[in-house]
């Protein structure tokens, strides 16, 4: 049994003045194992972000149940932290205050004394390489730095499950590669956790998914559904040499064919 279980989950958006009801996806069954890195790929409009929002508890599904450790997810919780494509840093808070935000104002705000909070935050500032930028405001940071800050904020809150919604989607190709490397490094080297955390990572980049994931969920469109789940057997720790390997290319080609068939099918 996985840490997160989705059972015949569906999401239908009600008809609005602009248009009729739309089915985002339906009949999604998914078991996410504890400690695994799961990527969800699919064309835009397949509902992958909606699925992630449901796991986060930001939205409720119109059909089926999503549960974490056997309990139905009914709302957001610090147990499931999230990384957003547009970073969602609080523009009126400095880097430091963004990173300590959840610890200071969240439901767990009384869990640690101030000194301990600062220690935790300091650890993650160092881990993501933001030393010296603690006093800056988000608008003073580059895109890559913003996402590092958001990652530190996420990790400092000590969630069990990390949800990532195309976190590198807005970055240039080079920064993107650097941050992918950083992410696998950080994920493997997190100081506070005795075991690796569960990650659910949404992306539309196949390379990214293959590089990061243990398993890849391929979603299809119209209506959104799970098409296939691919296990990535690339050895860890992964790094630059991973991307150069032949198995990496095989897997990306396989997934690419998958996605292309889907796109052609959907366009028909």
């Amino acid at each position: 049994m996985g840490i997160i279980e989705a059972t015949s989950v569906g999401m239908t958006f009600a008809a609005t003045r602009q248009g009729s009801a739309t089915v985002a996806f339906q009949d999604v069954d998914l078991d996410i194992e504890e400690g695994e890195f799961l990527c969800i790929v699919g064309p835009s409009g397949c509902g992958k972000t909606t699925l992630l929002n449901i796991i986060a508890g930001l939205e409720r599904p119109t059909a089926g149940v999503v549960s974490m450790e056997g309990e139905e997810i009914e709302g957001p919780s610090p147990e499931r932290g999230m990384l957003f494509q547009d970073y969602a840093l609080f523009p009126w808070k400095t880097v430091w205050d963004n990173i300590t935000f959840g610890l200071r104002y969240g439901v767990r705000r009384r869990q640690y004394p101030r000194r301990r909070r600062d220690e935790i935050a300091r650890g993650f500032v160092d881990l993501v390489g933001l030393q010296g930028s603690e006093g800056k405001y988000p608008h003073e940071l580059s895109g890559g730095m913003k996402q590092r800050c958001a990652l530190a904020r996420l990790l400092a809150n000590e969630p069990e499950v990390l949800l990532m919604d195309e976190p590198f989607g807005a970055l240039d190709a080079q920064t993107r590669l650097v941050l992918q490397d950083e992410l696998v490094r950080v994920w493997g080297a997190e100081p506070s956790a005795p075991r690796r955390k569960t990650v659910v990572f949404v992306t539309h980049s196949i390379d990214e998914a293959v590089f990061l994931a243990d398993r890849i969920v391929v979603m299809g469109r119209r209506p959104g559904r799970i098409k296939e789940i691919v296990t990535v057997d690339l050895p860890r720790p992964r790094g630059t040499q991973t991307r150069a390997g032949s198995r990496f290319r095989e897997l990306t080609n396989l997934l690419w064919d998958e996605m292309r068939d889907e796109a052609i099918e959907a366009a028909r």
Binding site: F13, A14, E59, T62
Partner: peptide, 14 residues
């Protein structure tokens, strides 16, 4: 004024 759209984003099933 009151025409401002109600808090956007999550289209809840209504």
């Amino acid at each position: 004024d009151n025409n401002a759209s109600s808090a956007g984003g999550s289209a809840r099933p209504s």
